[in-house]
Simulated assay, not measured.
Amino acid sequence: MNFKQYGRPAVIAIAAALALSSCAANEGAAPTDGAASTLTGTINAGGASSQQAAQEAWTAAFQKTNPDVTINYDPSGSGAGREAFIAGGSDFAGSDSFLKDEELAGDFATCAPDSKAVDLPVYISPIAVIFNVEGVTDLNLDAATLAKIFKGDITTWNDPAIAALNKDAKLPSTPITAVHRSDDSGTTKNFSDYLNQVAPDVWTEKPADPFPYKTGEGAQGTSGVVDAVTNGVGTIGYADASRAGDLGVAKIKVGDKFVGYTADAAAAVVNDSPLVEGRDASDLAIALDRKTTDATHYPLVLVSYAIVCTEYADADQAALVKAYVGYMAGAEGQAEAAKSAGAAPLSTELQDKVAAVLKAVK
């Protein structure tokens, strides 16, 4: 995996910790020798709605082996999750966006004084371009056309730009309703990042959690987008692929081919992408490479993070978070997310990096 790092003096310490990481990921999480769990308490967390299906599966599995632990996860959206964590209202945040520089520069009420928070990848998923257009079952879109649809530059389904990419389709003259997230959303930021990297002449706004254009129809959360596309006419939207259901899903152009999403194709992009430069060695934020022309890759992908403290104000909560996030990012948790939510498992190397960071959390 090509996780490049620049200017990080603590790399050596992390590398040393990797040697001890094989047991750290599930430390206290799932006894396998018949011993009862000693963990007790409540974890309150929230954020990315993309993680909802995985969180439901993770919570159920973790609580089977840790019956005295209660886990509450509110899929309120990435922005709301980060805000709650920063304000001290949760023990960790789920976020499809890694912490912004200005957030990192501030204080975290959940954390001990003079300590910070870090981004730990726990969930990889394709973003599906979902649609509901009568008579259309297959749809090809390149980045520029997709960008024009969501900017409002293309307004009907039989537009020549769409027709040129779908020569065998019977496209209606139905008006397009492009549905975006109305809340601050890491899925929106990833969607915008893809369009800004691949079609920058069209999608000129830099990626951010709020949807950047005053076009289309807004809907709250992943469920809101899926419901609006499902119940609308001539609708298109974007959502975590685990929630696409029976809706049509467009193929996107990668190189000279149109590619549908798969977990393996999403994971391939993550594996070939570097870490964000200039951050602490314990921060594992990933700078996704959207410009690939390799048709075995699906570049419209999100990496969702658990944002945790390097040191918690409450040591008991630190132990709970370490155990649960370690389970999420470890082999068992990743297999559960793949089975229950169609997620792409973190590579063994990335699992080990997360485990090494968690081992140092206190």
Rank of each mutant, 00 (worst) to 15 (best):
A25P: 01
S223C: 00
K214S: 15
D280Q: 12
A30P: 00
L120N: 03
A45C: 15
L302K: 14
G234D: 06
G186Y: 00
T42K: 15
P67H: 11
A61V: 13
A25W: 00
V276I: 15
A250Q: 11
L275E: 03
I43G: 00
L120C: 07
V270N: 03
I12A: 13
A287I: 07
A144T: 13
A54P: 04
D74E: 10
S125D: 09
A208P: 02
T137R: 15
N72M: 05
G152I: 10
G81F: 04
L247M: 13
G186I: 02
Y238L: 07
L39G: 04
A268Q: 05
G135V: 10
G81M: 04
D316E: 15
D96Y: 06
F191H: 05
N66I: 10
S273D: 01
I307Y: 03
D153N: 12
S115E: 10
T110Q: 13
K4Y: 02
S340R: 13
A219K: 11
Q51T: 06
A319K: 15
A17M: 14
F211Q: 01
V249A: 09
Y123T: 04
N231P: 07
F3P: 14
F258C: 12
A48P: 05
V308E: 03
G232T: 05
L302C: 09
A356L: 11
E103N: 08
A178M: 05
A228K: 14
K253S: 13
A319M: 08
Y238E: 10
A87W: 09
R279P: 01
